[in-house]
Simulated assay, not measured.
Amino acid sequence: MGWRRADTIRALLTLRIYWHCTRISHMQLSRRDTLCGPYAENFNEIASGFWQATAIFLAVGIMILCAVAFVSVFTMCVQSIMKKSIFNVCGLLQGIAGLFLILGLILYPAGWGCQKAISYCGPYASAYKLGDCSLGWAFYTAIGGTILTFICAVFSAQAEIATSSDKVQEEIEEGKNLICLL
């Protein structure tokens, strides 16, 4: 019975970059049927070099997106940075951030072959193969966020096209600051 219970627990495990969760199947009626906790307390304890690289790439991508959000607040007051349209600059930064996010998402499954993942997910776990584990919702959310990052970069290019028309330039010359065209 002990072997079966451990096997059941292993099959219901999600493993993250520095965190793992175990769903205990015999506690279905309980409120707390999922036990989560970190296996790494700091960056150096992250189980795989691939996961350390993932953490770095995702952090850099998110920092770039935060910078874009900060810069976009000032788009009503500043229309260009070093003679480049603010829309082009933000779109370019969003594209670069998206590339960092993609690199992180590609490297994350490569880390499943580390010893920690094999001990949690069973002997069939290897790079790009989960073994007995499953992906958590954060991975799918990160994919969705990356897709939205590229969609926003496309919108930035469209905003540049919309605001560089002759009609918009005439309204800017008339003294209008906030101009929205569809």
Results as ranks from 00 to 15, higher is better:
T149N: 15
C152H: 15
E174S: 01
D132R: 10
E171A: 11
G145C: 03
W137I: 10
S165T: 12
C152A: 15
E173C: 04
L135Y: 14
F155Y: 11
I143K: 09
I172T: 02
F155T: 07
A153I: 05
A162H: 02
G136T: 04
Y140M: 06
T163E: 11
A159I: 01
E160M: 04
K167R: 09
C133A: 11
D132K: 11
F155K: 08
I151M: 14
F150C: 08
T163L: 09
E160W: 02
Q158M: 12
S165G: 11
K167T: 02
S134D: 13
V168Q: 00
G145S: 05
W137M: 13
E174Y: 00
I151V: 15
F155G: 08
S164H: 11
L148H: 14
I161T: 10
G136I: 03
W137H: 14
S134E: 14
I161C: 08
I172P: 06
I172W: 00
V168I: 00
T141V: 03
I151F: 14
S164P: 07
A159Y: 02
I172S: 04
D132A: 12
A157H: 03
C133H: 08
Q169C: 01
I147A: 05
G144I: 02
F139R: 12
F150S: 11
G145Y: 04
Q158W: 08
